[in-house]
Amino acid sequence: MKETVYNIFIFSKDGVHITHTGIVPHQLDNDDHYKLEFLLKNLEVDLASCRSFHPIHPSVLDSDGKFSLARYNSNMRVNNSLTPFEIALANHNALQNPLVIVTPVIDGKIQYDIQLSVSEKLRHKHMPHQHIEGVKSLPDYLDQYMKGDEFHVKELLNDDQMKPIKLLFNNKHYLASFKLLMSFIDTIAYIEFGNVQRGFQNWLDTYSALNSLEVTSDELYGLRSSMLHMTNLNSHKVMQGKIRRLSIAICKKGYPTQLHDNVAYLNFTDFLFIFDEAVDRWLDTYKDNKKQLTLIERYDEIIRDVY
């Protein structure tokens, strides 16, 4: 069957961010295998002769208006492989779902380590660096938690993060449970804001009702830092007199924060309920496709232990 097929190039100077795309059309007759082999054989020639350059479609850019190679991988993970190139394809009057090969060009040189059909979703099994001889492979979380077009994020976070926290709490390992919960807030703050200062506090201030416990996010962050680093209550700001010394108490639900001997005791039971409600508010904002791409891009970097 005769049709127009395309070599598409994504250009990156630094190996991190994609700046633009180039496209070279070919009108070919024969089967798909022949056409793909033709495109592969002509990569170098097409790169040298490419004169049709276009921006990435804005629907897939991140909140800073940028598009990284990692974010392109996120698009491939949800079968969104061609959306970044809609402007380039429209410029060539391409039909829906054309036959294409997409190739990264890093600092002027073709560079790729994954070969994947654009109709197939990218998974860990396709990534060479995911396979370590003698080491058990971790399942791809999207195989389990992406059902159809719906991403079951709360179920993923519960299985990966909250189950161990609740298991420790229910077995009266309260300190270990609290430490793990503080680390989990660091994780979701990174997913939401990236690697920024005050992400922990900003996430709590934006989504939680922490103030109902008469505790501030700075006080909780001080406790988090001293607990995770030293397993004591002496954070730098506490020692400087800038925030109250905070600790945890195990009380019935609804028991207020108590001040005793210059220590404010946070009801850990209440905080677990407040945190769960905050996660629901936070996840409500991820119905937006661009935020979901960001979540996948950043969660791919999170260390997991669910085999």
Rank of each mutant, 00 (worst) to 15 (best):
T19Q: 07
A209M: 04
S63Y: 09
F275Y: 15
E120Y: 00
F9Q: 04
Y6A: 04
N30P: 00
C50E: 05
K125P: 04
L283C: 08
D280V: 13
T285Y: 10
F200V: 06
F151W: 06
L116P: 00
Y190M: 05
H152F: 08
G148H: 14
V306C: 15
D261H: 01
L167G: 11
Q240K: 15
S177T: 08
D46P: 04
A90V: 01
K154R: 07
L89D: 02
L142P: 01
R77Y: 12
L36E: 09
P128H: 13
N7S: 15
I165D: 01
I165R: 02
L175I: 13
I296A: 07
R51A: 02
D64I: 00
N211H: 14
L122Y: 09
F9Y: 11
I191P: 01
P58G: 10
I18G: 01
H126Y: 11
L175R: 11
K166H: 12
I106L: 10
I185G: 01
P98F: 14
E133Y: 14
E37Y: 11
V24P: 02
F85M: 05
F53Q: 03
I18A: 03
L272F: 10
H236F: 13
G254Y: 08
E301G: 00
D218A: 08
Y34L: 12
N202Y: 06
K41D: 10
K253H: 03
D205W: 10
Y6P: 03
L168R: 11
K172S: 10
E150S: 09
D159G: 07
I8V: 12
K179D: 11
H57W: 11
T83W: 12
I191H: 03
